[in-house]
């Protein structure tokens, strides 16, 4: 089996992984999730860096340079936006009255949400 086929199998498995991981996410997290997955494809930055690193002509260098800027913006901006959205889901310290039991039943309610 040559490496192209191995790569295609990686592609297949990764596609199923993406599908499975998302299908468990409750509706309330859809916006942060879209933003989070937007951040994750910011890994394109790494590819752009490698390409710029191997660029020879000025034209290749210019396009590679643009690619790294765009990739870095995707990664950094995607992270900052996602982080800001999720910050709001942190439990507020102002609500310590919530008992451990209450937390548990909430968690259960969410798992049910996720199942639906």
């Amino acid at each position: 089996m040559d490496s192209t086929w191995a790569a295609l199998y990686i592609f297949l498995l990764a596609a199923f992984t993406g599908y499975e991981v998302i299908s468990r996410v409750p509706v309330i997290l859809h916006t942060p999730l879209m933003s989070g997955s937007n951040f994750i494809h910011g890994i394109v930055l790494v590819g752009a860096m490698v390409v710029l690193g191997h660029a020879d002509t000025p034209l290749e260098q210019f396009i590679g340079f643009l690619g790294v800027i765009l990739g870095a913006a995707n990664a950094a901006g995607g992270y900052a936006v996602t982080e800001r959205m999720l910050e709001m889901f942190e439990r507020k310290p102002a609500k310590p009255a919530l008992s451990a039991e209450g937390q548990k039943s909430k968690a259960e309610a969410q798992t049910q949400d996720a199942k639906r």
């Binding site: 990686i10 998302i22 937007n38 890994i43």
Partner: peptide, 17 residues
């Protein structure tokens, strides 16, 4: 491979979403 895996996971997840 990092680009293949991360990109494809997002491609599939994003399509479902």
């Amino acid at each position: 491979a990092a680009l293949i895996v991360a990109g494809t996971v997002v491609g599939a997840a994003g399509t479902l979403l």
